[in-house]
Design a protein around this nucleic acid. Structure first.
Lengths: 155, 155
DNA sequence: ACGAAATTGTTGACAGCTCATCCACTTGTG
DNA sequence: CACAAGTGGATGAGCTGTCAACAATTTCGT
């Protein structure tokens, strides 16, 4: 016995549409910009940021995958592609014969150091500058709230 | 002379991170759910919704592309794939020899009618229910604000 | 200590997106 | 009317993400 679907009421639908459109437009513009400015995808960027933010530029494969919340298969393909372009390399892990380290190469450091300022500038221009500090912190709080709520939900 | 990059201050960075994580988690879970429940991608879904929401289930190619804010090439590939699966079909346009209509097939109607209630339920469960009505309308307002701001920015 | 189960990571097939390019038709201009 | 420019849409190459299956260790229970 199917319950009748609880459709969104007009305000809910409008809210959902606004959010979705905003988020798609924002992410789309940022990633196209990043690609055009630095030849890097958003995925390349976040991998390099994650690696280089820790002092030694290296991380265990699955730790990295968990940090950015990707499936391991995605990470594996991503690392393969980035290694092919010389941005990172794999090193084996002495403690665990299965394991691997992902290491940012010097070229990887150069790439992220060049890309980051421009990218941050675009984040600021498109997103941060759109809101007052109060509005920004409200949005952050609501985002966190949705995030916490999702973590409690199955799936 | 490069201006020194204006890095995000800790609150700005925290706001950005929260927003990005929320949005990625939300979109990721919704699209995996949709795919698993109905075999449809988010792109399939929005195309079918757009077509079937207008009474006749048909739309000009570029009108559809503009409505969902896609590049025409993306829409073209998408329509090709959906046509291959029988969800939509192309019809030529009598008024304009270059033009084409995209039409939802009966199978397309069935697919969207089956998928929509579940999808809406998940949107409600993951997103709408996370917030009070006031919070939801605040989020909608802030989203709109960011959207309007982006439209004024170059690129 | 031995086998089962869990963990770590890889691979291949396939669908999706973007970019550049191209073709066919229409419209505007002289 | 002729022809250049613009518009509507298709196509192919190449990169990215997902899913399912697999291989190589390590860990755990007995």
């Amino acid at each position: 016995m199917d319950a009748p679907p609880r459709w969104l009421d007009p305000e809910e639908k409008a809210a959902w549409d606004n959010f979705i459109r905003m988020q798609e437009t924002l992410i789309g513009r940022l990633s196209r910009r990043l690609q055009a400015d630095s030849g890097m995808s958003a995925s390349d960027y976040i991998v390099l940021v994650s690696l280089t933010e820790r002092g030694d530029g290296r991380m265990r494969f699955l730790d990295l995958a968990k940090l950015v919340e990707w499936e391991k298969s995605r990470m594996s393909h991503q690392v393969t592609r980035m290694a092919k372009r010389g941005l990172v390399s794999r090193e084996e892990c002495p403690d665990d014969g299965r394991g691997a380290f992902i290491v940012a190469t010097p070229a990887g450091y150069r790439a992220i150091e060049e890309a980051a300022p421009q990218h941050v500038e675009h984040v600021r221009r498109l997103f941060i500058d759109a809101l007052t500090p109060n509005q920004l912190s409200t949005l952050a709080r609501l985002s966190k709230r949705v995030l916490d709520h999702m973590e409690k939900q199955p799936d």
